[in-house]
Amino acid sequence: MSTHSVHLLHVQQADSNNPFSRPATPGYHALQIGWCGLGAMGYLMARNLAKYRGTHSPGSPPLLVWNRTASKSEQLQKELGEDKIKIAQSPKDIALECDVVFTNLANDTVVKDIYEQFANALKVSPDSINKNRIFVETSTVYPSLAGELDTLISNIPHATLVTCPLICVMAGDYRSKKEIAYLLVPAVGRKVMDLGGNLEKAPTFKLIGNSLILGSIELLAESFTLAEKAGIGAPLVQNFVKDMMPAPSMVNYGEKMLHDSFDGTKGFALDGGLKDSTHIRRLATELDSPMPALHIHMLTARAIHSAQMRRGEHGFDVLDWSSLVAGARVAAGLDGFDSSKHDAKVVLED
């Protein structure tokens, strides 16, 4: 295959993953991009975006980042270098200096507070009305909050909002989505899904997606626990999952449960899972769409962990949401966080 043919194939593959035509020249590469929120997900997304731009868009300004805990910003700058990461002193600096602002924050209250800071900073800055800005909200929030954020941002001249909580599922202004799509694909995500102009659709889709992940974790927890009680053991069930249902989330969370790897600083924290589950249940109730209670085992795991912390017996400062298996284990009379105490194995005959 000729070099020209390879290039055309690459373009066709890229287009099949992105429903938008490319932005007009000079395009996205000259934009000053800001990022607020460097938690478990935000850190990885910001890092991938900064690395990709540094490699594929030489001369692009460094990604301007802010995080409530400054050490996370400093860690990212140390990892990638000052040519790729610049640290902002406040959300106000991000709003005033950037053409595109991404946010990935812990919960609805924090998201609204940061966007109010953005809006207040731009309203008192005379120069802000002459600059186009796109705000991209990537946190997991309740859908109605998107409308509140839109009210804040739409009152600022030349500013638009895009919701993109599941990489890369987007809702909002069409031209803004086009710009963002080519920033994120393939730097952060593989494919764009466009859900139209209603900003609430993308957060709704994210909750539906998270319900699938949570449901699969719950299923693994119950099946692993049953296997332990039956004297078969969770490792054999994990092998079955790998052979028959090798979805990345199933396999990865199965491994965490199997090895009691419940460190939430290296995954998705349990409290974040409880927040998402609360949103899912609220949405299901409002839409009269019955859904099983998703967070009973998470609450049990958190209660056990809290008691261990008070006694100074905890193994992890923060729990990963895969630790919900502790709820299923304790309900079955097993140790919640230490599977080595389970007497479960298949005895093979000679």
Rank of each mutant, 00 (worst) to 15 (best):
S211D: 10
F262V: 15
N198R: 13
D243Q: 09
N107Y: 06
M250A: 14
K275H: 02
K206R: 00
F102H: 03
A284M: 10
I129N: 10
T151G: 08
I33W: 00
A88N: 09
T138A: 14
T160H: 07
K206Q: 02
R68T: 09
L270W: 00
F102L: 03
F316M: 07
H158P: 00
I180Y: 04
Y142H: 09
A40P: 06
V11T: 13
S71Q: 15
L294Y: 00
S60K: 13
A307Y: 05
S211M: 14
P91Y: 05
I114P: 02
G215F: 09
G37Q: 03
L149R: 08
G231I: 07
A303H: 11
T278G: 14
K123L: 13
S73I: 03
D15A: 15
A247K: 10
M298Y: 01
E228Y: 00
I296T: 15
D15F: 15
T151D: 11
P23Q: 05
Y174H: 11
A121Q: 01
L31G: 11
C168K: 12
G209T: 15
P290G: 02
G81F: 11
L145A: 01
L274Y: 00
T55K: 14
Y174L: 13
K112F: 07
N252F: 07
Y28Q: 14
L274V: 03
M250T: 15
I85Y: 01
Q117T: 10
I304N: 10
N104H: 01
G327N: 06
G312A: 01
P26A: 10
A121H: 03
S277Q: 01
D99R: 00
F337T: 02
W66R: 03
P165V: 03
V101I: 11
L122Y: 06
A221G: 07
I156E: 08
A119M: 04
L195P: 05
G336T: 01
V192M: 06
Y43T: 12
L207Q: 04
N155A: 15
I129W: 08
G267Y: 09
S340Q: 05
D320P: 04
K72Q: 10
N67R: 04
H295G: 13
R133I: 04
P235L: 06
R68K: 12
D335L: 00
P143W: 06
V346M: 09
Y142P: 00
S323M: 05
